[in-house]
Amino acid sequence: MTIERVNPPSLHATPGYHHVTKVRADSLVMLAGQCPLLTSGELAEGGLAGQTDQVIQNILLALDAAGAGPADVVRTVIYVASPVREELSAVWTQLNESPLAPAFTSASTLLGVAQLGFPGQLVEIDVTAAL
């Protein structure tokens, strides 16, 4: 498996992700959107930061179950239920300071959305990895 991450010189500089992620792999791993739910099915406490921590833990567990790790991630889409740009930036910073950080060097998208699937849910991340 090879992963090539590129920022073409004709495109703007990024805050850590790459514009293009090219993959040659035997298999792809697509996680369901990972939510801030505990094993019990209850929503993690601690507001946006606490929910983001739980999503990070859930992604790490799901990747491990697939035999993958953060460095194998080739695409992420991060959904934050907020119109406040500073809250989106805070999530991006938290993700990039976590054990999951290598996942966000690939092609990544960060979106503010009106709402997510569970009542009170503030963050969800969609992940694709290559093996």
Rank of each mutant, 00 (worst) to 15 (best):
residue 3 I to H: 00
residue 5 R to A: 00
residue 6 V to F: 01
residue 7 N to Q: 07
residue 7 N to S: 03
residue 7 N to W: 01
residue 8 P to H: 02
residue 11 L to E: 10
residue 11 L to A: 08
residue 12 H to E: 12
residue 14 T to P: 02
residue 16 G to E: 06
residue 16 G to C: 05
residue 17 Y to K: 02
residue 18 H to I: 03
residue 20 V to L: 15
residue 20 V to R: 15
residue 20 V to Y: 11
residue 20 V to D: 07
residue 20 V to C: 10
residue 23 V to S: 06
residue 23 V to I: 15
residue 24 R to E: 14
residue 26 D to G: 15
residue 28 L to M: 15
residue 29 V to E: 04
residue 32 A to F: 09
residue 33 G to H: 13
residue 34 Q to C: 15
residue 37 L to T: 06
residue 37 L to V: 07
residue 38 L to D: 09
residue 40 S to F: 10
residue 40 S to L: 08
residue 41 G to I: 02
residue 42 E to L: 12
residue 43 L to N: 10
residue 43 L to R: 04
residue 44 A to G: 07
residue 46 G to V: 11
residue 46 G to K: 12
residue 47 G to R: 09
residue 49 A to T: 15
residue 50 G to M: 12
residue 51 Q to S: 08
residue 51 Q to T: 08
residue 53 D to I: 01
residue 53 D to P: 03
residue 54 Q to C: 13
residue 54 Q to M: 13
residue 55 V to S: 05
residue 55 V to M: 08
residue 57 Q to L: 14
residue 57 Q to N: 14
residue 58 N to F: 03
residue 58 N to T: 01
residue 59 I to F: 04
residue 59 I to R: 01
residue 59 I to D: 05
residue 61 L to W: 00
residue 61 L to T: 10
residue 61 L to G: 00
residue 65 A to I: 01
residue 65 A to K: 13
residue 68 A to T: 03
residue 69 G to I: 07
residue 69 G to P: 07
residue 70 P to M: 06
residue 70 P to S: 11
residue 71 A to D: 13
residue 72 D to S: 13
residue 76 T to K: 01
residue 76 T to N: 10
residue 77 V to L: 09
residue 77 V to C: 07
residue 79 Y to I: 00
residue 79 Y to R: 13
residue 81 A to M: 09
residue 82 S to C: 04
residue 83 P to M: 01
residue 83 P to K: 08
residue 84 V to R: 14
residue 85 R to F: 05
residue 86 E to H: 08
residue 86 E to N: 07
residue 87 E to Q: 15
residue 89 S to Y: 05
residue 89 S to I: 08
residue 90 A to I: 04
residue 90 A to L: 10
residue 90 A to W: 04
residue 94 Q to V: 02
residue 97 E to V: 08
residue 97 E to P: 02
residue 98 S to I: 12
residue 100 L to K: 11
residue 100 L to S: 12
residue 103 A to N: 10
residue 104 F to P: 10
residue 105 T to W: 00
residue 106 S to C: 14
residue 107 A to S: 12
residue 108 S to C: 15
residue 109 T to E: 13
residue 109 T to N: 08
residue 110 L to K: 00
residue 114 A to I: 06
residue 114 A to Y: 03
residue 115 Q to L: 07
residue 116 L to D: 03
residue 117 G to K: 11
residue 120 G to P: 09
residue 122 L to R: 14
residue 122 L to H: 01
residue 123 V to R: 03
residue 123 V to A: 01
residue 124 E to C: 13
residue 124 E to T: 11
residue 124 E to Y: 00
residue 124 E to S: 14
residue 126 D to Q: 12
residue 126 D to G: 07
residue 127 V to M: 05
residue 129 A to Q: 04
residue 130 A to K: 10
